[in-house]
């Protein structure tokens, strides 16, 4: 890749920051060239972001409709599944799955709630509720 071919495509991917590519000058010498992004990688990122948004929205729908507990929604927001949340909290996977049932979640003790809240990086009060709109990237 030549210096003049280093893409400088504006996009949300780097949020105005710059990363570094390596490219060659006219003499074939390598130099580091800052770039604000490449539409090709932005497009790929958008595909992934779209999948994440769909996943979060679906989890939000389920939690709002009472098909899952609020934990299901908050887990989706931080892009974790039950197995990952289990390793994050030190609980068993079947425990996390059980806590996705609204009735079970309602009766969850303070210790368990605190554990989930810490792993998800939110306060306990937030964890117990499903917001009015999904928090998507």
């Amino acid at each position: 890749m030549k210096i003049q071919d280093v893409p400088q495509d504006p996009g949300a991917c780097l949020a105005g920051h710059e990363k570094l590519n390596y490219a060659v000058d006219a003499q074939g010498r390598y130099v580091g060239v800052p770039t604000i992004g490449w539409e090709v990688e932005t497009a790929a990122t958008e595909v992934s972001t779209q999948v994440t948004i769909e996943r979060i929205t679906r989890a939000w729908d389920d939690a709002r409709a009472g098909r899952t507990s609020p934990l299901g929604y908050h887990m989706a927001v931080v892009q974790l599944d039950a197995a990952q949340l289990a390793t994050e909290t030190g609980l068993w996977r079947w425990q996390v799955r059980r806590h996705l049932k609204p009735a079970v979640f309602e009766k969850l003790g303070a210790a368990h709630l605190a554990r989930y809240a810490d792993a998800l990086g939110i306060p306990v009060e937030t964890l117990r509720r499903v917001p009015d709109a999904p928090d998507t990237p």
Partner: peptide, 14 residues
């Protein structure tokens, strides 16, 4: 899309 991200976006120098 994930392959492209591993190749370019995550910081590989290109």
């Amino acid at each position: 899309a994930g392959v492209v991200r591993m190749q370019e976006e995550i910081g590989t120098g290109g």
